[in-house]
Amino acid sequence: MTTEKDQISGKPAGPVGSAPAGTPAPGGRPSEAAQGMAVVARSQGQLVRRRFLRHRAAMASIAVLFIVVVLAFSSIGFLGIPGWWKYSYDAAGTVVNRGAPTLSVVPTWLGGNGFSIGEHPFGQDDLGRDYFALTMRGTQISLLIALVVGVVSTVVGTVIGALSGYYRGMVETVLMRFTDVIITIPVLVIAAVLGQKYGNGGPFVLALVVAAVTWTSLARLVRGEFLSQREKEFVEAARALGAKPRRIIFRHILPNTVGVITVAATLSVATAILLETALSYLGFGVRAPDTSLGLLVSTYQNAFTTRPWLFWWPGLFIVAIALCVNFIGDGLRDAFDPRQNRVRA
């Protein structure tokens, strides 16, 4: 991006600060080692950012996700703040046009009606509720659950992984065998049982339920990273200086595992969306009158043949969100992965 900084060497051995220009005259050189610092190499963070910004799929996904989020929260409002959409998701109305969507996007020159939103762009359900508002509400809830799951499972997974990876021994054995047990039981079964028991507590409790089963993969990943990082010489150097475990974990190891954790956290968000959908679909998740994308799909699955839009709209949003999050995760992984030094011509 900045030309004067484009000096980092592409040598696999590592960067070489070089001094093509501005080297002091041989007579008055300050020292052998101080030479070669005339040029600024790009920092790790800058490199990661640059690679990520260049990842087209990830960038497009961020844009789409951003639009979805803005649409979902601004249209029907959130937490009492009113939105710009005229209908509420829980207000029944008269069914117009058998509840078919009024959204038209086919331009007139292709034989369509031109672009128009109409009264109920996504149609209406059998109670006459506006389906756009319902879908937006479902999206809100699904996104919130995914976010909470992402945060909680990342924190839990990181803590458990870090502890077992750093301390090894008994701590590791206990924590990792516990993790193994959770991994062995099918996620859906645990979540369904927990969801059945605590599902009435609302979306937040549901999110905790989902998080309780999704942290395992992250814990294993973080443990692996810690195991390899704790053997690095710079960790040993810190121990030689007399650093305490807390300092080593937080100042030395954790910053070097951020890449792995970020990627895993992003992907766990995608998992969470799908898991929530599955739970709600099975009836263990979000309960009426509130709704989520999964619940919408399950509620109207019987309408699939007669009024397919009731199935398609939430389905479309589920796919879009999950895809976007996955692409962003991919982009992050490519950006953090040092082996990804390939060129985009």
Partner: peptide, 15 residues
């Protein structure tokens, strides 16, 4: 008797 400095960057070689 070391050689001062470091090898040049292979991207920006000195003239």
């Amino acid at each position: 008797r070391p050689i001062g400095g470091a090898p040049p960057s292979l991207i920006a070689l000195p003239t």
